[in-house]
């Protein structure tokens, strides 16, 4: 038992170190234009402009994060509310319908949603946000359903019998106990979202996908690599940050 705890805490320390290492590397790339330019110039001597410089990487990262955060918040609100509704007595019969709708939302490729949304809404951030939010709901909904269903029935009966009202039961017991599972769903959704958000640049939205799109159309491999590495590092960093957060949330499960 002690050995297991020790190993767990060592794993935690290692993961925290990894998180800081990935973050450092990411920031180095974002703000290190000064030494990146000669590096890419030597890697791609045939290119005239080896470093993407239409926008600063920092502004691309900020724009990318903005879209991810907004669409993920929307997906979380929709996913968790739909999950909670589908597990109430009143919403139980809507559950198959909700699950079908949300699965359909993930079946449509975001590019297709963008293509359909643009004639309806026009160019800009709005269609990108809608496409990303729709795409991100499914894992959160599924996690909410699984999390709320895993709450032990006796705890709920006791909560009701002791006089917690319905909101106190929902937030204090059900969602509090489901939180680690829900957070795992949000994590999956956000990570997918970080990758998918790059596609929004196909319709002119400023994201980390922009160097990739520009690089692909201009046969500039260096741009593609720069965009792709930044998106990848961002996803890994956010994933590790979620890992830390999840560990905090389930601390009561591992205390000895």
């Amino acid at each position: 038992m002690i050995a297991l705890t020790l190993r767990k805490s060592m794993r935690a320390v290692e993961q925290d170190r990894l998180l800081w290492a990935v973050l450092a590397l990411f920031l180095l790339l974002v703000f290190g234009a000064g030494w990146l330019k000669p590096l890419f110039a030597s890697l791609f001597p045939q290119l005239q402009r080896p470093l993407y410089d239409h926008d600063s990487f920092a502004s691309l990262v900020l724009a990318h994060l903005q879209i991810v955060v907004l669409s993920s918040i929307a997906a979380t609100v929709v996913g968790v509310s739909a999950g909670v509704f589908a597990t109430r007595a009143a919403g139980r019969e809507f559950r198959p319908l909700i699950e079908t709708l949300v699965s359909a939302g993930q079946t449509f490729p975001p590019v297709a949603v963008l293509a359909v949304a643009i004639p309806l809404i026009g160019f800009g951030v709005a269609p990108a946000l809608i496409a990303l939010a729709l795409y991100g709901v499914l894992p959160i909904l599924q996690a909410t359903l699984a999390g709320v269903e895993s709450v032990p029935a006796p705890a709920l009966e006791a909560a009701e019998g002791l006089g917690l009202n319905r909101w106190q039961r929902l937030f204090g017991v059900e969602l509090a106990l489901a939180a680690p599972v829900i957070l795992a769903g949000v994590r999956t959704s956000v990570i997918i979202n970080i990758g998918t958000a790059a596609i929004a640049s196909t319709v002119g939205v400023k994201t980390l996908g922009l160097p990739i799109i520009v690089g692909l159309s201009g046969f500039n491999t260096a741009y593609v690599i720069q965009g792709a590495v930044l998106v990848g590092l961002l996803a890994v960093a956010v994933d590790l940050a979620f890992e830390t957060l999840q560990r905090r949330l389930v601390r009561w499960q591992s205390t000895r």
Partner: peptide
């Protein structure tokens, strides 16, 4: 109100139903 009534009556059950995330 059901909550007020229940808070004036203690309730203990066979399956105990402690809240696992609370000390």
């Amino acid at each position: 109100r059901p909550e007020d009534l229940r808070r004036r009556m203690g309730y203990a059950i066979q399956s105990i139903g402690l809240f696992p995330h609370w000390s």
